[in-house]
């Protein structure tokens, strides 16, 4: 058993679990935070995306015990039904989902992705990697490619992200 202390959604939490426990299973099974979803469990779908120290990561491909002292933010920490985050509200407004299974991962991912853009990170579709690119549909599609939507709600997901990004400026 491995003891791990984490700050999850701004609250200190502690778990004692087999070192095999992934961060994803720790959230869902040890901490009752079931907003984060398990799709593939192998880094291939993005449903499990959470923020680790502000950066988006796949919680299925990392061990909980490797995050001792880290700050983790899940979909539950971004907003609540009465107080939606701007991206959550935009997903509702644009119907950025069908079944909703990929949605927590999409929203966590998009939250961090917009921060990456604000920091000037280039992407694979950026013409000149030296120059920070403006956010376009093409940039969003590329940067969000780690989040698969089995219902193919992509057009509305991109609309929601674009709107939230523009509102932020």
């Amino acid at each position: 058993m491995q003891k791990t202390e984490l700050t999850i959604n701004r609250k200190k939490r502690s778990i004692e679990a087999d070192p095999r426990t992934t961060l994803l299973d720790a959230l869902r099974h040890h901490l009752d935070l079931t907003g984060t979803k398990k799709g593939c469990d192998h880094g291939q779908c993005g449903a499990c995306t959470v923020l680790g120290n502000g950066r988006r990561i796949n919680s299925c491909l990392t061990l909980a015990c490797m995050h001792d002292g880290d700050e983790i933010t899940t979909i539950e920490g971004l907003g609540t039904p009465d107080d939606l985050s701007p991206l959550q509200a935009a997903f509702v407004r644009h119907d950025g989902y069908q079944c909703g299974y990929c949605t927590p991962g999409q929203i966590c991912s998009a939250t961090a992705m917009l921060q990456e853009v604000a920091e000037g990170w280039p992407s694979n579709v950026t013409e000149d990697v030296e120059v920070a690119p403006p956010l376009s549909r093409e940039e969003i599609a590329e940067r969000m490619s780690g989040n698969i939507c089995r219902c193919s709600a992509y057009p509305n997901i991109v609309k929601a992200i674009l709107e939230a990004a523009e509102a932020d400026q």
């Binding site: 950066r55 990392t62 694979n124 950026t126 780690g146």
Partner: peptide
Amino acid sequence: VRHDYPVLSKAILAGASGQLRNK
């Protein structure tokens, strides 16, 4: 890296996903 070795930035950005590259 972006200024002096852009081929390295480009190759990394062509791989995996934003989440995976963060880890």
